[in-house]
Design a protein around this nucleic acid. Structure first.
Length: 1036
RNA sequence: GCCGCUGUGGUGGAAUUGGUAGACACGUUGGACUUAAAAUCCAAUGAGACUUAAACUCUCGUACCGGUUCGAGUCCGGUCAGCGGUACCA
């Protein structure tokens, strides 16, 4: 007996491929066209493969095999994203070194993948936990560090006491840890941050260049969240001068500034500020040549940090200032380098130092003749400086930001708005409860209420905020600001609907044209003014476009303009008045890059004299020491902090004692660049061999789950762009084409429900209050009635749906079981046959059975059941017209469908071929061979076996893909459907050479039996003839 | 709430630029083979009407309502449902 039995053939071919290195990529020949097809980096979990994995992997494998047969040099690698929490937690629990767990899991994954027959080049396997790999992860980190893109900051982080670690936002779900469900609290900690925000614009703009699903691009755009608008200054009202500051020392949050250490006084008052602004305007309008030259180099964040020109800082106007770095650049010999100005500058230098400002001076000559050198000096100065909190420091009239602030100095509040056109409609102002000016501005009478509210708001942020009711809350702080265009006093409130970490932490509230402001104004009875026509602001906020009204004063009017024209005009005016400026804000935050864990890449930094310093590149990799316990240290630091011998080191430059960084990198780090390492995994001179990189990049096709749509892809793009900037890679974007596979759900489940009394109730009539007993029904226990399934023979409808596979539901399908029962080829085929790759679809074991039977039929078409040799009707005879027609139809369909990733219909085309061919009395060997090649990317094992049985001795992995010959598709006749009034009433068959002959076809159509009677009954008023398609006769 | 995607037989799904809706497969039913079962093979299978029966024919039918068109699963407007993302983002 030689029936189709996968277990007889699959292991044999898997062994053959591995032993012969059949799929080893030969990348010595760069003249061949290349194709880089990549699967998303798997995490080798202890559970082994899930049927979701092979879905994408089979798709890429089909493409890889297909491309090889089309003469492409194919790079199709796999590896392991093996650092991460699960192995570490297992280590905490059992004391097993995570390396051991990881190795075991990798071995299992590798075995499972090989049992499905994927054509990976196994010589390129990479593993993020391998020191030869993470050496380069660390190297890339150092490049980021040198570019000033890595910095330390005290950040409020998600601290999970139970896990003893900080979690990323995405690892916190509903205020609990994603792993384990433990409570999470906010706690400020020293953290490494990566400045992805510096790349926000490029990450946004370059999305245009890649061929990705629109939905993914949109998600990335939303995540980056670019908003264009304006920052506007609101002076505080003179009449309602705030009371002396109730501020306590050391209260500043999210800041690395030690508040109590700063004496912090600021001498800017309103008068001098106005003078300053005027001066600065003047200077800006009369720049020296040197200033202009330098400004061209610094503007628009060209060197990574934002510089402002002639921007008042304290009561002093530097030529250029970077506020986040507190770095001031002076061009000596400029307009304001008069004697008085120079003296003025020197006087301020000391004071600036108190605020951690550093001043760099360059001569005008240097700037003009040695621009590059000057710029590089500025760059390195920037890199050596940490990020200072931006809060209000850029507004000198605030005073010293986080420093102790005297009330008299607080003169204005800066807001960010995307709707400067509605400025005339701003009737109140709202600060975030955490806003540093709140304490300063709050009046004595309101102090108690404000403190209460702040306390509540702080608590709230720890709770699950999303679920809280949308009703607005807030407190008036007693102070007023002046609307700069209406001149009216407007009250200042605090409310938790304003977030400290977006924009400036303060808003101008325009209740007429913002839904949140409208709700707030209604609740607290604040005035609502219409400034854009088009809605009814007594009923709801109007946020649409329209004519601007009620928006003029002596100096400016925007009445009558459209929203967008008004935005432009008012913004320009504000800039001229020094009251504001165009501003762009992003939702994207810098990337929190530290984890307090053992099982991750150590961050290659040492701390000397309270300064951080990169370790020399030649000392990489910095490996993990052995530890006795994997629990984090009690302080929240990683277990590395307990290993004194590792922790204490010396600075190789100065010989001073140094302490190693104890934070490790997050799991995203290793997966940010793995696609580069595959190109030359053993390269020792850098992360990637530049010559090979130029040949292989970008990735032509990247397939994976949509769960990585935002973070992984954004982070990887960010790193890639940094590597591009420093010349390591040659492409702006790493992944040219991206496809997201849809999730595979469990089998369809039918569930009936009983109420507490034990009576069946309709599934659709359940409500949230009552409890029900769920009862699982088999498919035969239900039937469809109308739109619902009901319990057979009743009217009681049931719930019919598929669920996400999960252990607890017990609907997980293990690929090993499928392979054991049906074989790897059937698994592959079914994964593809289920439906379109991108779509979510339920699993069905009967479906697997179906494709398995198809493979059996293919087998029996060629192989004699008794002898195991070819069937006697498989003959070496020339193929006739019909054979070739069926074959070439299949070639056409399968080829087009693979190119279009429509694997399900490609398979159905092969089924159609088989259904036809199996009926042929004698079957030409040549036709069957060609069909076997078509089948091979989908079901490679059976294809190799049949290929051998058909008399070939080579593997078919590199056979030429069959070429379509259109001439075989032509037929002698052409069928036409004949419609009368759009309904098909008959069908005619005409000779092919007459098919485009309108008169001939119409005459034949009118003579057709079924059509004739309609023509007799009415008048033919119109004839539609679409050549080779259809005839439609309109009869009245 | 907002953004995006998807709604086609009992089920998974097909259907080029608008041109014969339901390919292919599962399931079901009937039949062949078998002592029997499994496997395999053959046939039927959207719902309904007409007919002794068969053939034929007709009506309805792609979530719902409406529109454009000779013709709509496909295009447009509106509604509903499901899935994914996101959330006081100013």
């Amino acid at each position: 007996m030689s029936d189709y039995k996968p277990s007889n053939i699959e292991p044999k071919w898997q062994k053959f491929w591995i032993e012969n290195k059949t799929f080893k990529t030969d990348d010595s020949d760069f003249t061949k066209p290349k194709y880089y097809v990549l699967d998303m980096f798997p995490y080798p979990s202890g559970q082994g493969l899930h049927v979701g994995h092979p879905e994408g992997y089979t798709a890429t494998d089909i493409i890889a095999r297909y491309k090889r047969m089309n003469g492409f040099n194919v790079l199709h690698p796999i590896g392991w994203d093996a650092f991460g929490l699960p192995a570490e937690q297992y280590a905490v629990k059992t004391g097993t070194h995570p390396r051991i767990t990881t190795e075991r899991n990798i071995a299992r994954f590798r075995e499972q993948l090989q049992a499905i027959g994927f054509s990976y080049d196994w010589d390129r396997e990479v593993d993020t936990t391998d020191p030869d790999y993470f050496k380069w992860t660390q190297w890339i980190f150092l490049q980021l560090y040198k570019q000033g893109l890595a910095y330390e900051a005290e950040m409020p982080v998600n601290w999970c006491p139970e896990l003893g670690t900080v979690l990323a936002n995405e690892e916190v779900i509903d205020g609990k840890s994603e792993v384990g469900g433990f409570p999470v609290e906010r706690r400020p900690m020293r953290q490494w941050m990566l400045k992805i925000t510096a790349y926000a614009d490029r990450l946004l703009d370059d999305l245009e260049e890649v061929d990705w699903p629109e939905s993914i691009k949109e998600m990335q755009r939303n995540w980056i969240g670019k908003s264009e608008g304006a920052e506007v200054e609101f002076r505080t009202s003179q009449e309602t001068y705030p009371q002396p500051p109730p501020r306590r020392k050391g209260e500043a949050e999210g800041s690395s500034l030690q508040v109590d250490e700063k004496p912090g006084y600021v001498t800017v008052d309103m008068k001098s500020y106005v003078v300053l602004l005027e001066q600065s305007k003047e200077y800006r309008n009369n720049p020296t040549e040197a200033e202009s030259v330098l400004w061209e180099e610094l503007r628009g964040k060209k060197i990574g940090s934002k510089f402002r020109r002639q921007h008042p800082v304290l009561n002093f106007i530097p030529d250029f200032v970077c506020l986040t770095k507190r770095l001031i650049i002076e061009a000596d010999g400029s307009v304001h380098d008069s004697k008085e100005a120079k003296k003025y500058d020197q006087e301020r230098t000391e004071e600036l130092k108190k605020y951690d400002f550093k001043v760099l001076r360059f001569s005008n000559d240097d700037i003009i003749s040695n621009t590059a050198k000057v710029v590089s000096k500025i760059k390195s100065a920037l890199n050596n400086r940490e990020d200072y909190p931006r809060l209000n420091l850029d507004t000198p009239s605030f005073g010293g930001g986080q420093g102790e602030v005297k009330s008299e100095e607080v003169k204005s509040i800066r807001v960010f708005t995307t709707r400067p056109d509605t400025l005339f409609g701003a009737t109140y102002m709202v600060l975030a409860p955490e806003h540093p000016l709140v304490d300063v501005l709050t009046t004595e009478e309101q102090k108690h209420a404000v403190e209460e509210y702040k306390k509540q708001a702080a608590l709230k942020s720890d709770l699950d905020r999303t679920d809280l009711a949308k009703t607005k809350t807030g407190v008036f702080i007693g102070a007023y600001a002046v609307n700069p265009v209406t001149g009216k006093d407007i009250p200042i409130w605090i409310a938790d609907y304003v977030m400290m970490n977006y924009g400036t932490g303060a808003i101008m509230a325009v209740p007429g044209h913002d839904e949140r402001d409208w709700e707030f104004a209604k609740k607290f009875d604040l005035p609502i003014v219409e400034v854009v026509k088009g809605g009814d602001i007594s009923k709801e906020a109007y946020t649409g476009d329209g004519e601007i009204v009620n928006s003029s004063n002596q100096d400016i009017s925007i009445d009558g303009l459209s929203v967008s024209d008004a935005k432009a005009k008012i913004t320009k005016w504000l800039e001229e008045q020094g009251l504001g400026e165009k501003s762009i804000t992003y939702k994207l935050r810098d990337w929190l890059f530290s984890r307090q864990r053992y099982w991750g890449e150590p961050i290659p930094v040492i701390h000397v004299d309270d300064e951080h310093k990169a370790i020399p590149e030649q000392d990489l990799p910095l490996t993990l020491p052995e530890v006795d316990k994997y629990e984090p240290s009690g302080t929240g630091e990683s277990p590395l902090a307990r290993i004194e011998s590792w922790l204490q080191t010396t600075d190789p430059e100065t010989g001073k004692p140094a302490r190693r960084e104890t934070n490790t990198m997050p799991q995203w780090a290793g997966s940010c660049w793995y696609y580069l390492r595959y190109i030359d995994p053993d390269y020792t001179e850098g992360p990637v061999n530049p010559e090979k990189e130029k040949y292989w990049m970008p990735v032509d096709l990247y397939v994976g789950g949509a769960e990585h749509a935002v973070l992984h892809l954004l982070y990887a793009r960010f790193w890639h762009k940094v590597l591009y900037d420093i010349g390591v890679v040659s492409t702006k974007e790493p992944f040219q084409r991206l496809v997201n596979q849809g999730m595979i759900l469990g089998e369809m489940e039918y569930t009936a429900f009983k109420n507490a009394e034990g009576d069946y109730v309709n599934a659709t009539e359940r409500n949230d209050e009552e409890e029900y007993i769920a009862e699982k029904l088999s498919e035969s226990g239900v039937e469809k009635k109308g739109n619902h399934f009901v319990i057979k023979g009743t009217e009681t409808n049931v719930d019919a749906r598929s669920f996400k596979m999960s252990k607890s539901r017990g609907n997980v399908i293990n690929p090993d079981d499928v392979i054991e029962q049906y074989g790897a080829d059937a698994l592959r085929l079914y994964e593809m046959f289920m439906g379109p790759l991108e779509q979510v679809k339920p699993w069905s074991m009967q479906g697997v059975d179906g494709v398995y039977r198809f493979l059996g039929r293919v087998w029996r078409m060629m192989i004699d059941q008794e002898t195991g040799n070819l069937n006697s009707d498989v003959k070496d005879i020339p193929a006739d017209k019909n054979h070739l027609k069926v074959l070439h139809q299949t070639i056409k369909k399968v080829t087009e469908d693979i190119e279009g990733h429509r694997f399900n219909t490609a398979i159905s085309a092969m089924m159609i071929f088989n259904n036809e061919a199996i009926k042929w009395e004698s079957k030409p060997v040549s036709v069957l061979k060609t069909f076997t090649i078509l089948l091979s990317p989908f079901a490679p094992h059976i294809a190799e076996e049949l290929w051998a049985k058909l008399g070939e001795t080579d593997s078919l992995a590199y056979q030429q893909w069959p070429e379509l010959d259109e001439q075989y598709l032509k037929s002698d006749t052409k069928k036409y459907a004949i419609q009368v009034n759009g309904k098909v009433r008959g069908e005619i068959e005409v000779p092919s050479d007459k098919a485009a002959d309108k008169d001939f076809v119409l005459t034949a159509a009118k003579a057709e039996e079924g059509v004739k009677k309609y023509l007799d009954d009415g008048n033919l008023v119109k004839e539609i003839f679409v050549p080779n398609r259809i005839v439609n006769l309109v009869v009245k």
